[in-house]
Design a protein around this nucleic acid. Structure first.
Lengths: 159, 159
DNA sequence: GCACGATCATTGGTGGCACCAACGATTCGG
DNA sequence: CCGAATCGTTGGTGCCACCAATGATCGTGC
């Protein structure tokens, strides 16, 4: 947010939504810096982690599992495939699909990202005691679950 | 985040940074929807509120007070001035400056935005008890203060 | 009194994330 | 077998937060 050398508390400064978006901004900056130190960004991590968790899959499936939109998935895979962290192969059983899989270099990269990520969690929560960290994550989880339920994220209700 | 009908907890799903950015996403969506229902967005509210709090000022000053970057300030003021919510007049005492001031229509709009904003805070915190809301905002404030201190926001240290 | 450095408004970019609409190709279901 | 659904892809949108550069104007130090 730049350099507000003249910041007596704007009237919005203590609103929950502001506190949330601002701390999230710091969190995002911390994590993104960690990722970018190895030439990656959030989508890359999410895709690599999803592949590692569930194994090779089509782009559409990966999109559903990782929460990355199909149209963003294309670019993400392109970027990872260019660096050979991921492999894109046609599915012989369904010619509409590509099967994406993790390469060894991709697994290595994932481990690097995981390490950076963990470090940054600690930086993020630095001013809080272990009990406070616990309470914060619990409260945030409750909020998130509530709003995820309300807003889509149907978790296969109709299947 | 679209419609992840196939979302068994990604390994990152309980990380503090994830909880934070996701809940912030919901918070932002809620507030932005409220704002857009009267044709505004976050920058508009912040600018109007800053003008209301401190009175007319130059664009540079407004930028410092509201945390909006100078280059974004131009567009924001253009948009508000087009709708006559704000007035841009040359400063006779310094021809580099424009003096921006709130019109009556602008004040009205601000009141509308404030109302929407308050409603959305409540929606955002719906699943939490009053005490829990209190604890959450306290924890977030601590986090935010810590990181604001670390990252710029010098609050006029050298003057 | 004047040159130099700072400040101001403005333009035109960048990046990350999350979306949407539309398309051709392919597959599936009735 | 035909229409509906799915898949990958392209090329947009919006919001927020930045950066660099430019021409005008101001203020200060000498």
């Amino acid at each position: 947010m730049q350099n507000p050398s003249e910041t007596p508390p704007g009237r919005w400064e203590r609103l929950p939504s502001w506190l949330l978006t601002q701390t999230a901004g710091h969190a995002h900056r911390l994590v993104a810096d960690g990722f970018s130190s190895v030439g990656a960004r959030g989508y890359h991590y999410r895709l690599l982690a999803t592949l590692d968790d569930f194994g090779p899959a089509s782009q559409a499936t990966l999109g559903r599992r990782s929460g990355i939109h199909a149209s963003d998935m294309v670019a993400t895979i392109n970027e990872l495939a260019d660096r050979e962290l991921v492999e894109r192969a046609p599915d012989p059983a369904d010619r509409r699909r590509n099967i994406i899989s993790l390469t060894d270099a991709g697994k290595q990269q994932l481990r690097r990202l995981e390490k950076r990520l963990a470090e940054r969690q600690d930086e993020l929560l630095a001013p809080l005691s272990p009990e406070e960290r616990q309470r914060l994550t619990e409260l945030l989880s409750r909020l998130l679950d509530h709003h995820n339920q309300r807003t889509g994220t149907p978790e296969e209700p109709w299947s």
